[in-house]
């Protein structure tokens, strides 16, 4: 399947996957993330139940301490 991940087209060798699987495969290892799928905010407790499929537009942002 092909998805848009942070504005880049990425191809994965499967039909669908959960947010948790996507974060692991794409090496997003930061503790605090903001994940949006097709513009909708996905909270952390829903990562393992939310499915990403072909054509989805996914944004992953890293939040780090400092201000």
């Amino acid at each position: 399947m092909k998805i848009i991940l942070n504005n880049n087209e990425e191809t994965f060798d499967r039909d669908k996957m959960t947010i948790s699987e996507l974060l692991e495969l794409s090496n997003f290892s930061y503790k605090l993330l903001i994940v949006k799928v097709n513009g909708k905010l996905i909270k952390k407790d829903a990562y393992k139940d939310t499915i990403v499929k072909d054509g989805d537009d996914v944004t992953v942002l890293h939040l780090v301490t400092g201000g």
């Binding site: 905010l41 909270k43 939040l63 780090v64 400092g66 201000g67």
Partner: peptide, 25 residues
Amino acid sequence: AEMKQMIIETCMTKFPDKPLIIGSG
């Protein structure tokens, strides 16, 4: 970072049409 997450989640729910500008890193 936890506070940054709090304001993002709150604003995206309560003020979806208001631009929110985060500093991170």
